[in-house]
Design a protein around this nucleic acid. Structure first.
Lengths: 206, 206
DNA sequence: ACCTGAACACCGTTCAAGT
DNA sequence: ACCTGAACACCGTTCAAGT
């Protein structure tokens, strides 16, 4: 026993995070445990604590990777758009598609909660902020004469709205009981919010 | 040991749910466990399974009580309002206040997820639907000429939006990084969405 | 019929002991 | 320095045994 050195610390971190991701993909955050992760990579429980402070630390790092991948897809979906209006709709559609196809990984980002006193690292918060800024940029293009603070507020309202629709959509809380699809509800949110946002902008300039 | 009969089945269920609620109030859903619940009420683990099918069953029943109380407060806040517009704002404010004051109980409703194949009972879904209908009623009063399906869609979009803002607001995901208060973001959502919803209604009637 | 408490298969985390 | 595996204090769930 002891001292195998088949992997560097960084390699160990990498394969552990990959194993964690696979477990979450297959069974959700509930299906993840320290022992299951190390079983997958041929180590024992103790070794996990050479690379991670706790199982929560591992989960946060796994979730940061999910946020990275989500951001890449969002950024890519904006790139090809001709107008700010279509770009915002593309962002929403990409977010929904990610939530629909990577449901377990996406849910894990929001489901996981750190114990009492702990807070998520700055790197995590930055990745969330980046997403809001992507929306904010397009809203600025849509209404260039609006105050930046108003646009920042709008980006948060709109993006939280899309997120809320996705969250409730998966909890059988939307579809059931005469409910509508996530796409339809998001369409209503974007149509009416953006109409209001641009209309009120015109009014305030008169 | 055995056969104390100090409580009826219904009383046992009641004090167990109350103990669970107290634990969640104090420490969140993570602070809840079958053993902690029975410790609080002077029983042993096994007895819990006389009244509940599983710990998830207990949590679902506890969450239904939270939804009941939330609904009562929402319904009460609408009662005193003079217009549909102020009623909708009152609903949002009551929802936010509930989330801010009963954070742990409110979070537990959305945080808890049933294992793989299981679904939440119909009684649970109905309690969620009731909330949407409260908003839907006011939107119907606000725009009486709109198709009922459009109003239903709007209620879901608007309410999911408010919910999303609350959820992200507590995950340090809104406030941090030049963020705004939950109240401000909700204000932006309501102002712009309702402006768009009523404006587009006028346009379509011209 | 009601309730216990031991048993089982799990957790996360720590750490002396081995190489 | 790296890694193990036993130990500890927890889980949820079951069920024979007691009253």
């Amino acid at each position: 026993m002891g001292r195998r050195n088949t992997h560097t610390r960084e390699e160990l971190r990498e394969i552990a995070l990959q194993a964690a991701e696979d477990l979450v993909k297959a069974h959700g955050l509930t299906g993840l445990s320290a022992r299951k992760v190390v079983n997958r990579i041929g180590y024992t429980v103790g070794s996990l604590y050479m690379v991670f402070n706790s199982i929560d630390d591992l989960i946060v790092q796994m979730n940061e990777r999910t946020l990275d991948q989500l951001y890449e897809m969002l950024a890519a979906s904006v790139a090809g758009q001709l107008s700010a209006a279509t770009a915002i709709r593309a962002l929403a559609q990409t977010y929904i598609t990610f939530a629909l196809t990577q449901t377990h990984r996406w849910l894990a980002v929001y489901q996981h909660r750190l114990p009492k006193g702990q807070t998520v690292p700055d790197s995590f918060t930055e990745k969330v902020t980046r997403m809001f800024e992507l929306v904010q940029q397009q809203l600025t293009l849509l209404c260039p004469r609006r105050q930046p603070e108003e646009v920042a507020l709008a980006a948060r309202a709109l993006w939280s709205g899309v997120h809320g629709i996705c969250i409730l959509g998966f909890d059988q809380k939307l579809e059931i009981a005469g409910g509508r699809s996530i796409q339809e509800v998001t369409g209503s949110l974007l149509d009416n919010y953006l109409a209001g946002f641009t209309y009120l902008a015109i009014r305030s300039n008169q």
